[in-house]
């Protein structure tokens, strides 16, 4: 069910890597769980949609008033890679 190319795509979307020996165990687990999901086909959902939940009237949304956010001090506490006011990362190329 979860073949090599599917597993590769899911790993890419998840930004995860696995070793060669882990691959078959992970694909096996995933397949078993996904097979279990087949139980849902027992239920006739024609004409039923998840539909949007309880709506909020537009008039009750957040008022457009500014509130103070985090201070630079807080940001420095978050990461050692927060330097000179920026979060530094390896060079951004076209890759995601």
């Amino acid at each position: 069910m979860v073949d090599d190319s599917t597993l590769d795509k899911m790993l890419y979307l998840s930004r995860l890597q696995v070793s060669r020996d882990e691959r078959s165990a992970i694909a096996g687990n995933m397949s078993e769980i996904i097979d279990y999901f087949a139980i849902l086909s027992k239920y006739d959902t024609s004409g039923v949609t998840g539909g949007p939940g309880e709506a909020v009237p537009a008039g009750e949304l957040r008022e457009d008033a500014v509130r103070e956010g985090l201070a630079q001090r807080d940001l420095k506490g978050l990461s050692p890679h927060f330097l000179d006011g920026y979060f530094s990362v390896p060079r951004v190329l076209d890759e995601g």
Binding site: R15, L16, V92, E95, G96
Partner: peptide, 14 residues
Amino acid sequence: EAGTLFEMYERTRS
């Protein structure tokens, strides 16, 4: 020791 951004994501999350 993640050289590229992509490696940083993958290794960090793994």
